[in-house]
Design a protein around this nucleic acid. Structure first.
Lengths: 122, 122
DNA sequence: AGTACATTTAACCTATAAGTTAATTAACTG
DNA sequence: CAGTTAATTAACTTATAGGTTAAATGTACT
């Protein structure tokens, strides 16, 4: 139950239903029943998911007659992406090491005929 | 309690303690007590956090005598970043303005009934 | 005013997350 | 072997997440 914004954002994203809702909203605003349609889940359940997304700032809702259209607000994702991006070097570094490894393999076995073999071992 | 990898990854990130642990591990491997040191939290609590991170594939652990050094594994963050990146266009400013403009257009012509129209404008 | 539709709230259930303390396992050390 | 250090497991508490059904609210339509 952490209350910092980043935790709330990540927690909101940690559910496939909510991620699917966000994906749907990239197509434009939608009402609650429209949003609920693809899921086999009760309307109150969807309502709760929307509340989670709203609390995370990932959607906003307006009133239009008896509908409460939901709209994607991607701003919090900026911070999430920013946080993750600090680690980019650590998953690219793995590739670098892999690259080093391949180079080493190739160097050590340069008398072998087929250099593609070293790739096949991966 | 979703079991897909992306949900597990986001859930693991949805806690400031765990994010801090990952940040610490960017400095290199660390034992459990070393990891625990900055937090006012019991060792079993840290142990549980580490288990969550391990299940998410964000750390791996080896044995070295009585220590179990933890090591950052950033790979799952690649997928998380990839997912979020689909939304980049929605937080970049000019697109926001465009979106506002389109919504305004839609509001001004809201007598039109076909919701697919709003999709086609994107 | 009465009915239908859209959405939320209430009340409840079950599972799990996050923490605690106390006990246990495992490896080293004298 | 006894003692120390590192880490996990067990047992427990409390709070919350995610779902349900049934009732309540708000708005529109005749």
């Amino acid at each position: 139950m952490p209350t910092d914004q980043l935790s709330i954002t990540f927690a909101a994203l940690a559910d496939p239903t909510r991620r699917a809702i966000l994906a749907q909203l990239t197509q434009g605003e939608a009402s609650v029943t429209e949003i609920a349609q693809p899921f086999h889940m009760s309307l109150p359940a969807i309502s709760k998911h929307l509340k989670v997304l709203e609390r995370a700032g990932l959607i906003t809702r307006s009133r239009e007659a008896q509908w409460r259209p939901c709209r994607l607000e991607a701003d919090p994702l900026k911070d999430a992406a920013g946080w993750i991006d600090h680690y980019r070097q650590f998953w690219e570094e793995n590739l670098d090491r892999l690259d080093d490894y391949l180079n080493q393999l190739q160097a050590n076995t340069h008398s072998q005929e087929n250099p593609d073999d070293s790739c096949n071992t991966l």
